[in-house]
Design a protein around this nucleic acid. Structure first.
Lengths: 146, 146
DNA sequence: AGCCGAATGCAAAAGCTTCTCATTTGTTGC
DNA sequence: GCAACAAATGAGAAGCTTTTGCATTCGGCT
């Protein structure tokens, strides 16, 4: 059973069969301190620059992809064309995104999870993953209404 | 209440406030005859070529975007980077995609729909849309298992 | 400390999608 | 029907995000 983790470290990188390099440690560090938890590769690049770390965008993409394969990070395809990444702390959840301000909130609902499994099974599919994203306007006065 | 439509026509284009041009009619026609119902812009371009219609890719993107605004077509962001389009016949549904062969099946589940609405409301969001896609291996022997 | 393969940075390239603009095509009124 | 005008199209250029090639650098192990 997976346990929710609060801290990631070089250990996690090593366990993924990757060398513990400075870029990888810094990227993991930034992902960990994110307030909202969701960033594009570009955003991550800028955050690292702000933190004084000059890490090439290509490296960021490479590392994020490796982290994804290792299960350290999850990649989402929200509307808008670019991929958004999030640290995988072991607790699966879905998303609700404000289409005005872009805010992302998370939720988990066992009823939905169960129904998905049932539906897949009834169609002969073996579920590997799923992506559920609700789009709407959040409660912020600036976003509310249309 | 929306009604499921089997046929689209020039009327639908006109009602969207668009001129009834040859490219638009042809695109709508191909979308209508699709077996699986889901195509990328590129696929659509090739299908039209096969049908002897030389319609530029740029036009296809433009028209699909207009159709989307008009509610004639729905755009999905499945994994893989490119957008996939589908004729909107008025019946909302979600998708289950085989990650081996790419087959797409549709489903609708009122329980899930209701739960989504409840979750959004509890978080102060006004739902505008949602995207639920289950990824897995379909029952085809070539895809089954991992 | 030194070696070797892995990792990085940069720039170039590759996909997908959008934009620009000259040309063509619907539509509307006569 | 036909002229007139705006809207739509096609072709290529441009824009973005993401990936790749290659020389250089770095981390891990002896």
């Amino acid at each position: 059973m997976k346990v929710k983790k609060d801290m990631m470290s070089g250990e996690d990188i090593r366990n993924a069969g990757l060398k513990v390099t400075l870029p990888r440690v810094k990227i993991l560090g930034v992902l960990e301190q994110l307030e909202h938890g969701h960033v594009s590769a570009e955003d991550l690049y800028k955050l690292l620059l702000d933190a004084g770390e000059e890490i090439g965008l290509a490296t960021i993409y490479r590392v994020l992809t490796q982290f994804e394969s290792a299960g350290l990070v999850t990649r989402h395809h929200f509307e808008g064309g670019q991929s958004v990444f999030e640290l995988d702390r072991g607790d699966h959840h879905d998303h609700i995104v404000c289409i005005r301000c872009g805010k992302v909130e998370e939720f988990f609902d066992q009823t939905i999870e169960d129904r998905q499994q049932e539906i897949a099974t009834s169609k002969g599919f073996a579920v590997e993953a799923h992506a559920l994203t609700i789009y709407g306007y959040c409660k912020d006065p600036k976003c509310k209404g249309s």
